[in-house]
């Protein structure tokens, strides 16, 4: 169900840009189901952790204000070819997913 994609791009300033696309509805909890009129419960990614060779380097904190299917990207200055970048996220319902890629 869940699928998370990662793209690593070499950056002109050195290091790499890591771009992550997570498939997620990011429900705010404010929207109503048009047919039943019931509120759709909030469902959103809370934290997304980036790790470089197994060491956490950054954590993105997301909330309901982030668009559905979040596309998050960060810059890593110290990454080099052959390094492994792992990204993993957890949502408010305890679901999680991760992706791993080696820097080419």
């Amino acid at each position: 169900m869940a699928s998370t994609k990662m793209k690593i791009k070499k950056s002109a300033e050195g290091g790499h840009d890591v771009m992550v696309l997570a498939k997620h509805p990011m429900e705010t909890g404010l929207r109503k189901d048009k047919k039943t009129g019931e509120k759709i419960p909030a469902h959103f990614i809370k934290t997304m952790e980036f790790a470089l060779n197994g060491t956490a380097v950054a954590q993105a904190d997301l909330g309901t204000g982030v668009s559905a299917n979040p596309l998050i990207s960060i810059h890593l200055a110290n990454s080099k070819s052959g390094d492994t970048i792992t990204v993993s996220w957890v949502d408010n319902m305890g679901e999680s997913d991760s992706a791993e890629k080696t820097v080419s």
Binding site: F50, L52, A56, A58, A60, L62, L71, I74, N78, S79
Partner: peptide, 25 residues
């Protein structure tokens, strides 16, 4: 926004932090 704080990034090392991008509502 009804909930003003939208997103954040916490940096722990590895040269991260020069850029952060997201799509927001």
């Amino acid at each position: 926004n009804p909930a003003p704080f939208t997103t954040g990034l916490e940096v722990m090392g590895g040269g991260a932090g020069a850029m952060y991008s997201a799509r927001i509502k």
